[in-house]
């Protein structure tokens, strides 16, 4: 029976569809009709624009030229330009001898700071929320989740005001506590403070990640903990040998999404630093540069090239992550041949 079912669920090829029973075929058609709005949406609004941008990347096309103007075939010019463009920063040789920091390097640098914090902070919160000794768990969970409900742009504006170096209450509080005005952080206006500032803004919205982690923690079978305690395992050993492996699929899931999100990082520098790259070009993230190329400079072809390179990078990193997952991600129900 199970073998029959698996055949139905996973046809090897189109040919095997023909071998389906009339009922199975009817069910497949019904299924397809149900997902057809999504399929249409995917084709019209994702696949087609993707293919269009791939074609644009081989043309010299600008919005100001008009869509009916004769597009000029550019061959690989845009890709050559991409590797020579110090602002894009694709070529590592430009990373350290260019007067402007490259956008790719900026993105990687920020990711190295934000990723560990963005992964372990919600995990730590989830562990706290999962602690049976914590009183008022429900209230805390609600409080930590609430910021996630606030629209992201609104929260960025809010933080922009709070961390305003002149009038923000954070600096006012620091000044009240005795920090000299000259020593107050300039937050988003200081090269050394701008990434921590962005991380702080990001941490505020970790409620969703925390909730996913918490759900995962609560799904760990309690008999595993009981058995470990009977064996005299310390709290750290329990955490390291039971909790982490059991929730590793969720950590992995969050990690993949966080990495993709970081390479697409865009809104905060656009709102907080007006998308200018201030201070000192440190916030001209790759995706922001892509956005500016497309919509400010209206260079569709080079913007498409930047977009495709970003897609390739994210794809590669995701593939690498997935290939490492077999070493550290534990799927309880998985059978390995």
């Amino acid at each position: 029976m199970l073998e029959e079912l698996s055949k139905f669920q996973k046809p090897d090829s189109i040919g095997s569809v023909r071998t389906l029973s009339p009922i199975a075929r009817r069910e497949m058609r019904t299924g397809l009709s149900f997902i057809s709005p999504w399929l249409f949406g995917f084709l019209a609004f994702t696949l087609l624009p993707m293919l269009a941008t791939l074609i644009f990347s081989f043309l010299d096309l600008k919005i100001t030229d008009g869509i009916f103007s004769a597009p000029k075939f550019a061959g690989f010019d845009n890709y050559v330009h991409l590797f020579q463009d110090p602002q894009a920063g694709i070529n590592p040789a430009t990373w350290f001898n260019s007067k402007t920091p490259g956008s790719l390097l900026i993105t990687i640098k920020f990711a190295l700071i934000a990723l560990p914090i963005g992964t372990f902070f919600p995990l730590s919160l989830a562990l706290l929320m999962n602690n049976k000794h914590l009183k008022g768990q429900f209230a805390f969970r609600t409080l930590f989740y609430m910021p996630y409900v606030v629209p992201f742009v609104a929260s960025v504006f809010l933080w922009g005001g709070m961390l305003n170096s002149e009038s923000g209450w954070v600096n006012r509080a620091l000044e009240y506590l005795g920090v000299a005005h000259a020593n107050l952080p300039q937050w988003a206006n200081d090269v050394n403070w701008v990434y921590p500032t962005y991380v702080i803004m990001g941490i505020w919205g970790v409620g969703n990640s925390m909730l996913i982690m918490l759900a995962s923690l609560q799904g760990v079978p309690t008999e595993l903990y009981d058995a470990a305690k009977v064996d005299g395992a310390s709290a750290w050993k329990i955490l390291w040998n039971i909790t982490f492996p059991m929730i590793s699929p969720v950590i992995f899931y969050n990690l993949v999404l966080d990495i993709i999100g970081l390479f697409q990082y865009f809104l905060v520098p656009l709102v907080v630093n007006s998308g200018t790259g201030r201070p000192g070009g440190a916030t001209m993230f790759y995706n922001l540069y892509l956005y500016k190329t497309f919509f400010t400079y209206q260079d569709m072809s080079y913007g498409s090239t930047l977009a495709w390179f970003l897609f390739v990078i994210i794809l590669l990193i995701t593939i690498i992550l997935f290939s490492t997952s077999k070493y550290w991600v534990y799927y309880a129900g998985e059978s390995k041949s």
């Binding site: 791939l54 074609i55 644009f56 081989f58 009916f68 103007s69 597009p71 000029k72 075939f73």
Partner: peptide, 15 residues
């Protein structure tokens, strides 16, 4: 095919 498509698009523009 994509490169050919972009070349055709480039050639087909009307002025």
């Amino acid at each position: 095919l994509l490169i050919i498509a972009s070349m055709i698009l480039a050639a087909c523009g009307s002025k």
